[in-house]
Design a protein around this nucleic acid. Sequence first.
DNA 1: AAGTGGTCTAGACCACCAA
DNA 2: TGGTGGTCTAGACCACTTA
Lengths: 261, 261
Amino acid sequence: MGTTQLESVPEPKYWHLKTVLSEALDHDFAVGEILPNERELAARFGVARATLRQALEQLELEGRLQRRRGVGTTVAPPRVGVAVGSARHSWPGESADGWEAVDAAEALPTAAVLKLLAAGSGSAASGSASAADQPVHTVRRTRVTEGQVVAAELLYVPAASVPGLSAIDAPAGPARARAVLRELQRLALDGQDRSVELGSARADDAKELDRLPGAPVLLVTTRYFTAGGTAAVSVATYRADTCRLTFGDEGVEITETRVAS
Amino acid sequence: MGTTQLESVPEPKYWHLKTVLSEALDHDFAVGEILPNERELAARFGVARATLRQALEQLELEGRLQRRRGVGTTVAPPRVGVAVGSARHSWPGESADGWEAVDAAEALPTAAVLKLLAAGSGSAASGSASAADQPVHTVRRTRVTEGQVVAAELLYVPAASVPGLSAIDAPAGPARARAVLRELQRLALDGQDRSVELGSARADDAKELDRLPGAPVLLVTTRYFTAGGTAAVSVATYRADTCRLTFGDEGVEITETRVAS
DNA sequence: AAGTGGTCTAGACCACCAA
DNA sequence: TGGTGGTCTAGACCACTTA
């Protein structure tokens, strides 16, 4: 009666497990060190393997662990900070910032891409279905930081945006991708627009990022504006486990995060 | 022999399930509509409940579904875009942007907070342990968008940063929090620094965000610089399921994302 | 071939919400 | 009180890596 029943909520096992493991990682393990395998860890803590895995999954989500099938679970290094918003208003590929052109192709835009391209154009051009029939050049790029692929990007450039685009005759491959970027850079960039959200890796992106499909990723969507409207849209898929996106307005960079509870 | 064995990889059940459900959500369901419960869905698809849950978890991670214990699973509305980087270089609380001061307190900084505050100060002041002994004012804020709490923030202000801070005598509560912010705004802001990463909600943040502990969140860490160095640091915890962080340099806003595979 | 993490099952019980 | 999602178990088999 008088007892206030303060927090009688039983903490879930996996949550407690995660806390214990997290502290063990801080004190008793070095970066890169291999943990005991899941079956042994589960036995050691007296829980089912599924419960143990639930704790490991969260720690991996937080960038503390790295798990690879057939290999084992290792202690992850601190997340690498990748600059996303430092160079203000520039076309993709204008500065050597770790991006590598991979390939380029031409296709009709999906509904989602069309929607991204349509917004911001101001005039209500959605009346006719013309935009959907216009082909879109897609450029695939990859971003490498500290020897590791941290992001895969798809850039969509409507053929109508860039006049010189139809003259490109390079065969598929990096050369063609670079050619498309070069043409794009000829235009006057009026502004850009960026958003970040959580997603899960599509099969193709996952392969490029050396992760399993469905792995958590940070989706960075950028729209590039010219006087004519939205000239291009890119969707970059960053590994959420290993990356920290930085939007430093200056050269300064945050070195480490993790605010303990 | 001649058969190239093209992609003999069997797609995991939960992955296929997710695809099927995703398309069903697009075509046959309206926002807010309640899905059949997990046991029935599992039976309908002929899989174990755990497998069905794996698919639902991913869809929730992608912001397509919303699940509430004791209630059910509903179709989520499109993510709300919350502006994070629009107002350039301003102290927290300077513009009425949906943030509400909740409380303020004073405590010794944790090692992680200390680290964030130390970096960027230029001079090697880490020699003495003085900073660790200096109390830090912590301000709790909450951000509401469209009637929903989308973020919880903890702002750390070293007492040494702001001279007028020691004179504050307001009792705990919103009034005290606002008083601390007011003092902070008196300083000249030299610059700021921002990073975004994936995390899981601590118990206190989860409560504020109306989620379970461990829910996926986007951690936005901001450092505020004055001539004297890092004057304050804030860590904002955004609901990853419902939020899309926008860094628009202008008034333009992305309206919808989701690039289908 | 042996060992790892990834997937899947068929149950059980619990915490929470609404009627 | 009944129905929902959340947690947990003790198994099984599979895909992958390494030796």
